[in-house]
Simulated assay, not measured.
Amino acid sequence: MGFETIQFAVADGVATLTLNRPAVMNALNARMRAEITQALTTLPREVRAVVLTGSGRGFCSGQDLTDAGASVNLERTLRDEYEPMLAAITGCPVPVIAAVNGVAAGAGANLALAADVVIAAESASFIQAFTRIGLIPDAGGTWIIPRAVGMARAMGMMLFAEPVPARQAAEWGMIWQALPDADFAAGVAARAQTLAKGPTGAFLAIRQSLAASVGNDIQEQLELEARLQGQAGRSADFAEGVAAFLEKRPAVFCGR
């Protein structure tokens, strides 16, 4: 697979997708959005987890404001380019970790927050920078962030456009974990291997059930849990998990 704006590599069941425009802090242009979408929707069969990260000193600075076509028609860009990219993340057939190695700003922050799990280096930060140029948060930010941190914090982040350091983001519940910079790479790799060796079907059912819980009442959620658990209970992974438990050995799950 040949790409111009991202790097894509697979090792030990983990695909690492690296945003690779470091000279502009990995700003999102049309080609990068298309390449992210392509990479995530054409994953090799052996991939069982994805790590999404950035090259250089930042994760992603958001929309490339020199990308003239996008700036002319923001609505079209969001509908035709951002929505497919975000759908490729939230609908990825394997779990996605956003490994936020530096600043994640604007749409770059919301790109990270769309992942299943967000792990950040302590030197990283998240900023909803949109009001600095007279815009509103997009790329899913107005949906994801208030559900993660509450309305008051979401409103403050978006109105004041101030950076939220990674450790504070973790304390707020906006991300899963903030790691010391020296431990960041190893910590992400260990988490990715846990997911790559785990029961992929169960992971995706967890994603589905949590997403549905936002709009479900308790009875609807109980019914969904029963249906998804029934599917999981008929899987080869469940049979292997029980056998491994009884035999006191690590489970070897079959993947996807």
Results as ranks from 00 to 15, higher is better:
T41L: 02
G173C: 08
I145L: 09
R31K: 13
A99T: 10
N20H: 15
V50G: 05
V50Y: 03
A105S: 14
G91W: 07
A154R: 00
N73D: 15
A243F: 05
Y82F: 11
D67N: 13
V252F: 04
T5P: 02
L135E: 10
L228K: 01
A11N: 11
A196G: 08
R249C: 04
G91E: 07
V47Q: 07
Q221K: 08
V96R: 11
S123F: 00
G54Q: 00
A232R: 13
P146Y: 05
E247W: 01
V24E: 01
G156Q: 12
V96I: 12
A99H: 06
M85R: 07
E220G: 15
I127C: 12
Q193Y: 02
A124S: 12
L159E: 11
A170E: 14
A239H: 14
G141C: 04
L86Q: 09
D181W: 02
A112W: 05
A232L: 15
F8C: 07
A107I: 00
E162I: 12
A98M: 05
V103R: 06
C92E: 10
F253A: 09
R79W: 00
F203I: 02
I6E: 04
S123L: 00
Q168L: 15
V188I: 09
V164C: 13
M1D: 09
Q229G: 14
T142N: 11
V117C: 11
Q229N: 15
L222P: 00
I218L: 15
A115H: 07
I136F: 10
L179P: 11
F126P: 02
A178E: 11
T5Q: 08
Q168Y: 08
G241W: 00
C254P: 01
F8T: 01
N110Q: 13
G69F: 00
Q63K: 08
T200M: 12
N73C: 01
I175F: 09
R132L: 15
L246T: 10
L222E: 13
E240F: 03
I206A: 12
T37G: 01
K248R: 13
A39K: 03
A115E: 01
L17E: 10
R33F: 04
A112T: 02
R48H: 14
D138S: 13
V252G: 06
A211F: 08
L111K: 04
Q231R: 14
I119S: 02
R57W: 07
A170S: 14
I218M: 10
E75I: 09
R256C: 04
A186M: 04
I145C: 12
T90N: 06
M157V: 03
N20R: 00
R191H: 12
I136P: 00
D67C: 12
